[in-house]
């Protein structure tokens, strides 16, 4: 298998297809106390992230929107990953996620445990797609800090 073929399989893993076909937590949240919009107009990717935060813990998280498989799966897996986590931990996860996609690869043993989110490590080989995978996370960050302007990553 050529290098590009293996990179492509790293990018499009079954977990990503699964979350693209059946996004989790994919609904508006009427009792959300935090929400923010994300929009990459050049791509057309668009989403809204909803949060309910109780005692500095993400009690519930959901999203609606549309985009490519990478951006949809990223939003879906993100909502799963942050539910029940302290807000500070969710923000740290965003930091680590971003580093995984953009920093030079290190020995995986040294890196933080990304759990299911590790499936996005393959995006690093496709720099044009990093913005797809990070849009949901930037939107999450805006929701947490209460930013008014829509998030964008392009």
């Amino acid at each position: 298998m050529s290098n590009i073929d293996s990179n492509l399989r790293e990018l499009y893993q079954e977990v990503i297809f699964d979350h693209n076909r059946k996004p989790r937590n994919f609904h508006p949240m009427p009792d959300a106390d935090h929400h923010a919009d994300g929009h990459n107009p050049l791509c057309g990717d668009q989403l809204t992230v909803y949060l309910r935060i109780e005692n500095d813990v993400v009690a519930d998280a959901s999203f609606v929107g549309h985009g490519c498989a990478i951006s949809t799966a990223s939003a879906s897996l993100m909502t799963e990953a942050i539910k029940g986590k302290p807000v500070a931990e969710a923000e740290a996860l965003f930091h680590n996620f971003h580093a995984m996609l953009t920093d030079a690869p290190t020995d995986s043993e040294d890196g933080p445990d990304m759990g299911k989110l590790a499936v996005f490590a393959g995006v690093r080989e496709f720099p044009a797609r990093v913005k797809c995978a990070t849009l949901a996370w930037h939107t999450l960050h805006n929701a947490i800090i209460g930013a008014k302007a829509p998030a964008r990553t392009e």
Partner: peptide
């Protein structure tokens, strides 16, 4: 999505535009 298609076609040496 057209962007996913563009990435996969590129891996096959097929250059198209998506967007």
């Amino acid at each position: 999505h057209p962007h996913d298609l563009g990435t996969i076609l590129d891996a096959e040496g097929v250059a198209i535009r998506a967007g």
